[in-house]
Design a protein around this nucleic acid. Structure first.
Lengths: 112, 112
DNA sequence: GGATAGGTACAACATGCATCGTACCTAAGG
DNA sequence: CCTTAGGTACGATGCATGTTGTACCTATCC
C-alpha cells in the first residue's frame, strides 16, 4: 500500500478491481466527471451531487480509492478527491483516453 | 438488438455493462485469451478450460454476449465464440488496446 | 462554546450474482 | 438406434455489494 489508507501502490492496481469500480453508474459518473475536469483538479466528495445518502457516498469513494482510481486527501472536516492520472496512465496506457471518450459521449455536448 | 439472440447492436453496447462483464476473472480471462488469438479466430466455449461447471460456463458466456464483447454462432451441438473487434473498436476506441496490454501483462512472457 | 457541514464507522437489509446440480436438447459417430 | 459431447434452461444457494439510518468525529464559523 502507498499509505496506511486504502490507496494501492501503482503496481498493485488490479485491472479486475478497476473494472468492478467502473461498473457502477455512480462511480463511473464520478470518474468521468473527474476526467473532464482540468488536470490535477481536486474536488470534494459532495461536489458530485450524487443522489444517495452520505453513507453510500462514503462507500463508493472507498471503492474508488481502493481500486486505485482516485486519491483523496484528508483535510480534517472535508476531503479532497483527485484522479490518479499518472499512475493509471503508466499502468494501463490508453485507459484514460477510453474513459475520456466515454465521458464525452455521456455528456451530450454541453450538459454541465 | 442485432438478432433474436442476446447480441446488442453496436450502438447499444453499454459501457457499464462492458465494465461489469470484464470485472469477473473468468470473463476477463476469456476476453484476454480471445485478444491474443489471431483476428477473427473462432473458438469453442470449452476451449478456454474454465475451472467451473457447464452451467456457470453458459452463464458467463451469456453475460459476455449480452455485454457486446463476444458474438457466438450456434452450430447445433457446439458453439463458436468470436470477439467483436470492429464493433468494440468503433464504439470505444482504444479499449481493445488496453485489453491487449492487460492480456500481455497477464501472460508473464510465454505461458501458453 | 455551540452550531453546522462534511465524513466515517457500524450494523442492518435487500438485491444481484457467481456457482452448482439436474434435466433436457441437438448433432456427430459408433 | 444408442451413446457421447457440448450447451441450454431452470431452480437453489451462498456470498458480495449497493443502500440506508444512527451515532460519532473533526474543523470551520458565528
Amino acid at each position: 500500500m502507498t499509505d496506511e489508507w486504502g490507496h494501492p501502490a501503482p503496481d498493485e492496481i488490479d485491472f479486475g478491481k478497476l473494472m468492478a469500480a467502473l461498473a457502477d453508474p455512480m462511480r463511473l459518473k464520478v470518474v468521468t466527471d473527474l476526467i473532464q475536469d482540468s488536470v490535477d483538479a481536486e474536488r470534494t466528495c459532495a461536489s458530485f451531487n450524487l443522489p444517495v445518502s452520505k453513507s453510500t457516498c462514503t462507500h463508493h469513494f472507498r471503492v474508488l480509492r481502493e481500486s486505485g482510481l482516485i486519491q483523496d486527501v484528508d483535510y480534517g472536516n472535508r476531503r479532497g478527491v483527485r484522479l490518479r492520472r499518472e499512475d493509471l496512465q503508466s499502468r494501463f496506457p490508453g485507459l484514460l483516453e477510453v474513459l475520456a471518450h466515454q465521458a464525452a459521449a455521456g455528456t451530450p455536448t454541453a450538459a454541465r
